[in-house]
Design a protein around this nucleic acid. Structure first.
Lengths: 185, 185
DNA sequence: TGCATTTTTTGATCTATATCAAAATCGTTC
DNA sequence: GAACGATTTTGATATAGATCAAAAAATGCA
């Protein structure tokens, strides 16, 4: 089954007609490591799932790249601003490995919400789950030291360490690579 | 009109039957400064609006209180974990001024979602808006210095400074009161 | 008005993390 | 397997912010 449909089903019931039309509107992409899926300033965006691969979201601050999150297989992602509002994205989404992506564009999504209002239940559940993840990150940044944040990340995304280099992790944690290297020792 | 209904209407259309039933389930509370609305460990919780007053959400870390957010008039609030999941709250919600509150309990809310599925649109929009607010806070904590975070807060909630003491603000910003005092100079 | 309590500021010192530079290690390719 | 670039570690020093203590200022209240 389509991996994006599969994920949607985790949040609530999908009736047959809606499922069929969603499936028709889902786009498949195969992307190489280093390619971008979204660049800052873009309005177009989508909810998407990786059936294979790894992505990072990052943005620029004072000329430096800062990672805001990493995405692994079989989870729904999207860039909050362009998916939930009319505003352009301030972040970039880039593949860190060769990846396969199933995506549904915001415009299609909004049309589906209109056509099949029962989809709002799934949309609500997804957004609520995103809130919970974001709140955990806030608590981590608000209350934890660099070491603790590193440990929290390991607990949450243990595979990440084998898949991306230290610089990326440090940037996500809000510390320098040197500090992260010392912490690990 | 009921202040909570008024806020709900900002997110989408409420049909008459749903609105009537929501209104019946909304509870009104009048609370004095210092009283609590929610304590950690509780499962029961609600979406609510202040028609008058001010609240803070806080939790304990290493025996110290840390403020996680402040709520002013005419905005929908809730504690994420107990409202969006079955999990108990880890935070406390306390009134910082004498306040008037209109609230709908999670259990009632969920029953209404079942009975009037079109409410899921409003629920989705609320959760999506919460995501945007949370993302801004993450960026602030991730990328800004204490001074910048202070300035961001002033921009977002300018009245707060006249309504709560420095200790509360410092705790929200994740710095000590002494540092905040020095920053302001 | 004056006293007690709370809040804010100031001072001295300490600590976690940043910065800049260089060395060491790892991985890849010819 | 030698050589190159990328990644990680180590070292020396600088800085933002924490901590602890105390003084000053503001606020509440009898």
């Amino acid at each position: 089954m389509n991996p994006l449909i599969q994920q949607l089903r985790r949040y609530g019931h999908l009736n047959e007609a809606a499922e069929k039309e969603i499936e028709q509107r889902i786009n498949y992409f195969s992307k190489r490591k280093g390619e971008h899926f979204l660049k800052e300033g873009q309005h177009v965006s989508s909810y998407f799932v990786l059936s294979k691969g790894l992505i990072r979201a990052y943005f620029f601050k004072n000329g430096r790249e800062l990672n805001s999150w990493f995405g692994e297989e079989n989870q729904i992602f999207g860039s909050i601003l362009p998916v939930y509002t009319e505003k352009p994205s301030f972040e970039n989404i880039q593949f860190l490995e060769d990846s396969e992506v199933y995506a549904i564009a915001v415009d299609d999504l909004n049309e589906l919400y209109r056509k099949y209002p029962e989809l709002n239940l799934i949309g609500r559940k997804i957004a609520e789950e995103v809130c919970i993840v974001l709140e955990e990150r806030i608590i981590s940044l608000h209350t934890e030291s660099a070491i603790e944040r590193y440990q929290s990340l390991i607990k949450l995304q243990p595979n990440l360490l084998n898949r991306v280099n230290l610089g990326h992790i440090a940037s996500y944690l809000g510390i320098t690579q040197e500090t992260l290297s010392r912490i690990r020792r």
